[in-house]
Design a protein around this nucleic acid. Sequence first.
RNA 1: UGGGCGAUCGUUCAAUGGUAGGACAGUGCCCUUUGGAGGCACUUAUCCAGGUUCGAAUCCUGGUCGCCCAGCCA
Length: 567
Amino acid sequence: MTNANTESPEVSAPSNFLREQIAEDVRTRKFGDAVIQTRFPPEPNGYLHIGHAKAIFLDFGLADEFGGKTNLRFDDTNPEKEETEYVESIMKDVRWLGFEWEKLRYASDYFAQLYEWALQLIKAGKAYVDDLSAEEIRRYRGTLTEPGRDSPYRNRAVEENLDLFERMKAGEFPDGSRVLRAKIDMASPNLNLRDPVMYRILHATHHRTGDAWCIYPMYDFAHGQSDSIEKVTHSMCTLEFADHQPLYKWYIAQLGIFPSQQIEFDRLNLTYTLLSKRRLLQLVEEGHVRGWDDPRMPTLSGIRRRGFTPEAIRAFVASVGATRTNGIVDIEMLEHFQRDDLNRRAARAMAVLRPLKLVIDNYPEGQEELVEVANNPEDASAGTRGVPFSRELFIEQEDFRETPPPKYYRLSPGKEVRLRNAYFITATSVQRSADGSLEVHCTYDPKSRGGNSPDGRKVKSTMHWVSARHAITAEIRLYDKLFLKPDPGDVAEGGSFLDNLNPSSLEIVSDAKLEPSLGSAKPGDRFQFERVGYFCVDPDSSETRKIFNRTLALKDSWAKIEKKAES
RNA sequence: UGGGCGAUCGUUCAAUGGUAGGACAGUGCCCUUUGGAGGCACUUAUCCAGGUUCGAAUCCUGGUCGCCCAGCCA
């Protein structure tokens, strides 16, 4: 495994219990000479989301720290839900985060071995074929407070079990007619140990093994053994599998195979975000979003298209850490790390989302010039570029008020402000242009070229602008939270999480005016539109029409002041 | 109501028997050619009750609260 991100922003990695456990196991040589081996084991039944990023950074990152290796293993034991499309997207996402797996494996690689192990357990009297229906098995299992009862088929002879199991494999029986179960303890307080199902009959075509099998192992009879086969030393998974650990150990002990160790950590939860594959699938299928990679989706493909970076996700995940407590992380935390990363790296540009014409009456008609602008004030090595300036400009509508409210520093009649990197201007009047639209007239101070006045007078505000004659027109997609509530699942009786969908999560601005240099931007390129936010070029763009996604808005303290004044 | 796991600022993560600290959010000030960024300051926490100890967030006991488990899903 290699880690492409080791040189990325210093993330103070606080100690966590996983790291400490591994360190101790190394110290005590729990696994002898074996190197630390982990695995990332998604089921290919959907797209990866930000929650998986945490698991990925833990699985790959921790192994890397200890000089170990990580496999990518698809847990593909349920042919009814799994598809090659998902396998491919998952590989793409893992690589995008900056990781390369040691070995690519599938649980289905181990179907033959797993079958042999099942036979071994049958022969040892530890497994039996049960003819009970699913419904009957459920009833015999008992409840949380009452013990279960033995199936009438529990004590079948080994020979009969062998015969029946082989015939299950041969396809003699219909789906659901029989299962293979482990013979453990129907009275166990842990329901997972009440004779768990090992194999079920499924006449379904598997995305990799096709129709070679019609019996498929359950998760519990595949996961631990797959770990063991791969000599996984630390098998990290989320908390809801803690109850499965005794079973995980039971199979390994009965089979006498490599003792992989399962360790559970908490799942990532985010405010205003849904991280359930089932519901995400519903959003896609019912058309509430434009697809798995809709920039509003918490999928890795969605936030990638939105403009998020692997480096920011890594810093975020590191700060969130891993524990065994279940909580919900404020989405602002993720946004902070993303802004922090983009602030350092994103090239600056000027773009006016909602144009208002500004005419400089004392600037000679027909004249134009190039003003020099820093590509990134945070990074001198990013250099400078020339931006065309002329008599007629576009400024942001919200940067002008005919009657300014208190504390409004921007342009209003009689007020002087700075056009960034260009000149000081003073608004003189508001007029209707020939086509009926509003335009603001002003005068400029030629001696303030570059943005400083020679007499040292100051202005309260600096505004971005675009030369009307040189501007390119583009579409800009402004995204807001997909859900209105911090917990999208917080719904009234009989309601659905869909009731919490934000009706204005997408706003399309179709005629934004951008500085001409943006005409050569390529899909995926990221920018900070000064004073507005971070944006990236959407793959829907064409040569003639650029489309930008807003990754995040800049923090807006004026909006805060204005809001406070209202209340 | 059986079993498992957990509980520290509003949120998140530390403190591994010895000064409860960082980050996010919030508030105020400074600075600023982005009302961005940056700097400084401030506010706020050990679930409760007992016990052990010179000393407890940490160990013990008893409560309370939260999450997970009754798929032939993973």
